[in-house]
Simulated assay, not measured.
Amino acid sequence: MNIQTTLKLCSVAALAVALSACVRVSTDSGDNAAAQADAAAETLQDAAAGAEPADAFLARLARHCGQAFEGRIIANEPRSPEPHAFEGKTLVMHVRGCDDPTRELRVPFHVGDNHSRTWILTRTDSGLRLKHDHRLEDGSDDPTTMYGGDTATAGTAQRQEFPVDQASIDTFNARDGLSVSVTNVWAMEIDPGQRFLYELSRPQDDLNPQGRLFQVEFDLTRPVDLPPTPWGY
């Protein structure tokens, strides 16, 4: 076999591989393929722009400003004999506070008819801060509110983790039954146009012999009707 024939065969093989790849892509549903393309394009834009992970994460979430999405519990370990307070309730996140999306985003988290919770993500000099703003129905502060923490590492455009801060530890220690929360680590993940994840975890220790993992996943492919205004806003 001469060199020219070999090159022709290689070209045919390469074309076959390329065509098979195109066929695989075309079998995806249009909406799913478009969402995947959007997510991939944004990832490339983040890398090309040299955005820091904290900024890229905020930008990904800000793409959904003004939209609401329904979620479901995908992890709740260890399970309690009693049903979790969220079980059987409609869980909805609403990307709502977008006045200055490069510095702060506010995301109310509605649990059935309870509209007390709002996640506040703030850009800091070193990363991101997550706070949980809890309100009573009259709009006043819940006795346990504004707890959370700052990122301790750069994280990624997809995932950010927030170890509990000292102010929150002091709050938990001051209230009966909340001392198990002094080792909390919260996390959020986002795949634009696909999914958003809220997570609470605790390591195994004397206070939490079995550790803790709680996750709610939201479907970003299907916006839902906007929920009521959260309490206090």
Rank of each mutant, 00 (worst) to 15 (best):
Q4T: 12
T5I: 05
T6K: 05
C10N: 10
L15C: 07
A16M: 10
V17C: 06
A18P: 00
A21P: 04
R24I: 04
V25I: 11
G30W: 01
N32C: 00
N32T: 15
A33M: 12
A35V: 13
A37R: 15
A37N: 04
A41L: 14
A47N: 12
G50A: 11
A51L: 13
A51G: 05
A54R: 01
A54K: 04
L58N: 04
R60C: 08
R60F: 12
L61S: 09
A62E: 01
C65T: 06
A68W: 01
A68K: 10
G71N: 03
I74G: 11
N76A: 12
P83W: 05
F86S: 14
E87H: 06
G88H: 07
K89C: 02
T90L: 03
V95Q: 01
R96S: 09
G97H: 03
D99K: 04
D99M: 03
D99V: 00
D100N: 13
R103W: 07
F109I: 13
V111Y: 04
D113A: 15
N114H: 08
R117Y: 11
T118H: 00
I120F: 01
L121T: 00
S126H: 03
L128G: 02
R129L: 11
R129S: 11
L130M: 13
K131L: 12
H132Y: 06
H134N: 10
R135P: 15
R135K: 15
L136C: 05
Y147S: 01
G155I: 01
Q160H: 08
Q160G: 08
E161Y: 00
E161G: 03
P163D: 05
P163C: 10
V164H: 01
V164M: 07
V164F: 07
S168R: 02
T171L: 15
A174F: 08
S179Y: 07
S181F: 04
A187M: 05
M188H: 04
E189Q: 13
I190C: 14
G193F: 06
Q194N: 09
R195P: 02
F196W: 07
L200W: 13
S201Y: 02
R202N: 06
Q204I: 01
D206I: 03
L207R: 03
L207Y: 01
L207G: 00
P209E: 06
R212A: 00
L213C: 10
V216H: 01
F218G: 07
F218Q: 05
T221M: 10
T221Y: 14
D225M: 09
L226M: 08
P228H: 14
W231Q: 14
